[in-house]
């Protein structure tokens, strides 16, 4: 099934902003994002910690609706879904 993963800001610089992905049925949001980020270690490490969990500041949206990153491992991706991964920025 076709899905889109969108990386914003610094994540997008490292991983590409829009990624069209042919994903396997039943894949979770967390695993989809890991696969999308796996090609770039710096990008992956910016999003995930050493245990492979989302870093706690990362915001994940599924079809414009925010999901809790701790639930992303159990939420399945559906055909045509858009997953957005966003880092809030701290500078001023």
């Amino acid at each position: 099934m076709k899905v889109t993963v969108r990386f914003f800001a610094r994540f997008g610089e490292l991983l590409g902003n829009n990624r069209e992905i042919e994903a396997r049925e039943g894949i979770s949001v967390a695993d989809l994002v890991k696969e999308a980020a796996s090609g770039n270690k710096a990008g992956y490490d910016t999003i995930f910690d050493e245990e492979g969990a989302f870093r706690d500041f990362v915001i994940v949206m599924r079809n414009k609706k925010r999901i809790r990153t701790q639930d992303a491992g159990s939420i399945q991706v559906g055909e045509g879904d858009e997953i957005a991964v966003f880092p809030p920025v701290a500078g001023g």
């Binding site: 914003f8 800001a9 610094r10 809030p88 920025v89 701290a90 500078g91 001023g92």
Partner: peptide
């Protein structure tokens, strides 16, 4: 609220 980094902001 505002936050910025590089060419990005919220």
């Amino acid at each position: 609220h505002g936050g910025i980094s590089g060419f990005f902001g919220q």
